[in-house]
């Protein structure tokens, strides 16, 4: 007599089937949201970039590469080059400041850590518009910083600290720094203190431990942090518009100008598609390099 003969059947299949249905039900909402809010607009954007431009800011459906040909110009290359330069410089500064800052916060007493986290989260509640215009005031001829520099003779009277590249970069770093610190904080707070202590018992100084143990162990997080800043900075709009001159304008401003100023929606869409493609390529290359490095290790 088997278990089946007396009506005992294994419930495994039923038990496995139920969670699958529950999972499918739970995932339907987010999947629909992503489909409607991200994939459909992306598809529309590609469609628009291939459309025929009409006069008066209009367009008609079509399949032409006219706008994409405009991407193969020195102007577009310069815009993309500058956007990339700004993004990489911003990322380098942000990560160089945020990583040690997050490291030192995690080494503080619990109370001090909480205070810092509250402060950082609080700073995120400030509107980007407010911060950018505050920077404008601070760096302007009548601003506090310019005034102080003029007083010590480092700035000519009537001089201003904006619009220029350093002003754009400084403001972007200020805007992104709290995000990057908060991004590094969980990984660094989970770093086993015994790893650093082990390095110390083997003769490593604090600096040496940081450089030879902590930094390499956090390589993946650092790389992700860099990508995070690059992606944010590449799409920066308000900061370069207010604190920069046209040569310091990012691709986001040029997309807006093409769409709203020149009324060329297909060109704006082609710009946007190029940016997305560039970002995807950047992510893929980074991932491949990171995998190769892991495989070598």
């Amino acid at each position: 007599m088997t278990a089946a003969d007396i009506g005992l059947t294994a419930p495994t299949g039923d038990l496995q089937a139920k969670p699958r249905w529950i999972l499918a039900g739970l995932l339907t909402g987010p999947a629909l949201y992503i489909l409607i809010m991200a994939i459909v607009p992306a598809f529309l954007m590609v469609q628009l970039s291939l459309a025929h431009r009409e006069v008066g800011g209009l367009w008609s459906p079509g399949f032409e590469l006219t706008q994409y040909r405009q991407l193969a110009t020195p102007l577009f290359a310069r815009i993309m080059g500058f956007s990339l330069l700004l993004a990489l410089t911003g990322a380098a500064i942000c990560v160089s400041l945020a990583f040690p800052a997050a490291y030192f916060i995690t080494r503080m007493r619990r109370r001090a850590q909480v205070a810092w986290l509250v402060f950082l989260l609080g700073s995120l509640s400030l509107s980007e518009v407010l911060i950018v215009f505050a920077f404008q005031v601070l760096l302007s001829t009548s601003g506090t910083l310019a005034g102080a520099l003029t007083a010590v003779g480092l700035l000519a009277p009537g001089g201003s600290l904006y619009p220029n590249f350093p002003a754009v970069l400084t403001c972007l770093v200020y805007l992104l720094l709290p995000y990057v610190i908060l991004f590094f904080y969980p990984a660094l707070s989970q770093l086993d203190p015994e790893v650093e202590q082990a390095a110390a018992t083997m003769g490593a100084s604090r600096v040496s431990t940081f450089a030879r143990v902590v930094l390499p162990m956090m390589r993946r997080q650092i790389l992700t942090g860099v990508l995070l800043v690059v992606i944010f900075t590449f799409g920066a709009y308000l900061t370069p518009l207010v604190l920069g001159r046209p040569p310091q304008w990012t691709i986001a401003i040029h997309i807006n100008n093409a769409a709203m100023g020149a009324g060329n929606l297909p060109l704006a869409a082609a710009y946007a598609v190029a940016v997305v493609a560039f970002m995807v390529a950047l992510l893929v290359v980074t991932r491949l390099l990171s995998r190769r490095r892991e495989a070598e290790a």
């Binding site: 015994e194 202590q197 082990a198 110390a200 018992t201 083997m202 490593a204 162990m217």
Partner: peptide, 22 residues
């Protein structure tokens, strides 16, 4: 003397091996 000057070999409870090194 700090730990890095003493250089007493120590095996930790968690072993504390460096995962990024072979």
């Amino acid at each position: 003397q700090p730990a890095n000057s003493r250089q007493f070999g120590m095996v930790f409870q968690s072993l504390a091996l460096f995962p990024h090194l072979n």
